[in-house]
Amino acid sequence: MTEPSIKLEDWAQGISMRAGPVSLGLYQPSPETMEYWHGIERRELMLRQCPACQRCFHPKRIVCSDCGSSELTWVRASGRGSVYSFSEIHRPPSATFATGVPYINGLVRLEEGVHLFTRFIPEPGPVRINAPARLDFRVLESHWLLPVFLVG
């Protein structure tokens, strides 16, 4: 498996996502989120933070929804969190993901107050609401290196 290296110039073209002959759209690493993807290459999970009020946000945020600042900075997440919600997937979206079923996707609540969509890996498990979760990085079925959370 190869780990893709994200380059800024990729974004406008995007990375095609297909289901058989049907084009489904594009994975879109974009200029405003490049630091998130570069962080993953360094095995770091990066979030947005408002320098004025210190609130942390999803890596995709552009403006602070508390004070309106557009000067958000990047901050490295501690990697500690807990399971907010989850679902064990038995029917995959495509042949690419069929190799991994059943696998668990869900929302992790980070101690910075931000929620992210992620893959939960029961190491040691089990995956249940409020179970502690810690950051790791794995190459998933998509062949992408992604942040995941080990639970238990």
């Binding site: 759209g25 879109q28 996707n105 992620t118 998933l140």
Partner: peptide, 19 residues
């Protein structure tokens, strides 16, 4: 299945996890 999943998930932050 694939088309709906791609349409309903965030292409950057959700889709790569295989929802």
């Amino acid at each position: 299945v694939g088309q709906n999943a791609a349409g309903e998930s965030n292409p950057q932050f959700e889709a790569p996890y295989g929802p």
